[in-house]
Design a binder for these strands. Structure first.
Length: 264
DNA sequence: ATGGCCCGCTCAGCGGGA
């Protein structure tokens, strides 16, 4: 089974490109972030015609997550329990969608499509929101592992954190910025303490994001911020991982590229 | 080469992205 996560930066703008990727890559389950639309605006028909079921969680033009699957979807969860709110009035944003699929043998796999808050600046309220969001997710996810140690669960998406200095092109450019702070990195690595394994790091070395501005892509000035954390049972089944850098090329590209894993 | 911001919403300017 091939699982891909991709921050598509508006599905309505990019639907043809996403469908072409699905067919070319042979992805079975695609977790999307930043779909930037409501469910009724999601181009579901294009996915269905390509042979995919879809689950969509979107409130407005901000954020939004979705999952497309060739395997039947047997359970969908919008938000995770105790997901922190943002704004006034307080809203549980569309940043998490848990989809369970079932293969021909009856084996179930749950993929959480996650769009971690950006944080904006270190002195912006969005930054503590980001840290609280990650801590709340960690607490919930730990309970999922405890409830079923053999569960196949993937926490995938745009984590908006560069865990290591070499995950950005130049640390000097991130002096005092979010994405590289010690607190964010600690929040990211904390998942590993509970048994989650980030399964792409040891198999592929590349950035997953290049800013649209300042010729970041031609200069290969990118960031590695999209990751796949797997439960112990799923991590054991991972066979390979890829980052499809070619998807950043050409007109009409998202600023993120697909991150792919193959699991037995 | 892979190219100099791009998205949605509302209509020219802005909030958000990282």
């Amino acid at each position: 089974m091939r699982i891909t996560t991709w921050n598509v930066n508006s599905i309505r703008t990019r639907v043809d490109r996403v469908i072409a990727f699905l067919e070319r890559s042979g992805t079975d389950v695609l977790a999307m972030q930043e779909i930037k639309c409501k469910p009724e605006q999601f181009p579901a028909q294009a996915f269905e015609e390509a042979g995919y079921h879809v689950a969509v969680h979107g409130l407005n033009q901000w954020n939004g997550v979705a999952v497309a699957s060739r395997l039947p979807i047997v359970e969908v969860r919008q938000e995770f329990p105790a997901q922190p709110t943002w704004g006034d009035p307080a809203v549980v944003e569309a940043r998490a969608l848990g989809v369970t699929v079932e293969d021909e043998a009856g084996q179930r796999t749950t993929v959480w499509s996650l769009y971690v808050p950006n944080g904006r600046e270190l002195d912006n309220p969005h930054y503590p929101y980001k840290l609280e969001w990650l801590a709340a997710l960690r607490a919930e996810a730990k309970m999922w592992l405890e409830a079923d140690p053999n569960a196949r669960i993937a926490l995938v998406g745009d984590w908006n954190i560069a865990p290591f200095d070499h995950d950005v092109w130049d640390m000097a450019a991130f002096e005092g910025a979010t994405h590289v702070s010690e607190a964010e990195r600690a929040a990211f690595f904390a998942f590993a303490e509970d048994g989650w394994a980030e399964v792409t790091r040891e198999r592929v070395d590349n950035y997953t994001y290049w800013d649209y501005q300042k010729l970041r892509f031609p200069k290969n000035e990118g960031m590695r911020i999209d990751f796949i954390y797997a439960s112990p049972a799923l991590a054991e089944a991972v066979r390979s991982a890829e980052i499809d850098r070619n998807e950043r090329k050409g007109k009409g590209a998202s600023d993120h590229v697909p991150v792919i894993v193959d699991v037995d």
